[in-house]
Design a protein around this nucleic acid. Sequence first.
DNA 1: CGCGGAATTT
DNA 2: AAATTCCGCG
Length: 144
Amino acid sequence: MKINAAGLLFPDWAYKPAWSPGSRQVQLWHFLLELLGRGEGSAIGWGGEWGEFVIRDPERLAKLWGERKGKPHMNYDKLSRALRYYYNKRILHKTKGKRFTYKFNFSKLILVNYPGYPPPGLQVIITSLQLMSKPPVLLLFHFI
DNA sequence: CGCGGAATTT
DNA sequence: AAATTCCGCG
C-alpha cells in the first residue's frame, strides 16, 4: 500500500506501470479519485449513483491532468480517449445520456478494518471508501 | 459529444 | 501497459 500526497491510500497494484525503470507514474483513475476525494470546488465531483462522477469543467480537469503528467497540451478530447480505454479494462463505464458523466465499476462494500491500518498513533478520518473491480480493493482515507 | 481504430510515446 | 495524439464517423 502507498499513501500519496493527497492522503489517499492506493494498493501497490495501482502503481504497476513499472515499465519505465523506477518511474511509477500516477494513473488517470488514481488522479480522478484523488480529486474526488478532495470534495467540492473542483473540476470533478461525485454524481447521484454509487461510483458515478460528473466532470464539471472538462478543460480544467484536462489542464490539471496535463500538469500532473507534464503534458501541457492535454485537453478533454485526449483525456476522454483515455477514459474510454478504461471501458474494456472494466475500470469505468459511461453513464449514457448524462453529459460528462462516467461511473467507476465499484462492486461491493468495504473493509473498514483493513489489516495494518491506520498506522499506530496516527489519527484518521475515513471520508470515503471505495472498492475497485479491476480486480481488488481500494481504500481511501483522509489523514489528519 | 461520445466512440473506437491506428500509430506513437513514455 | 497506459496513455497520448490524431481523427473519421454517427
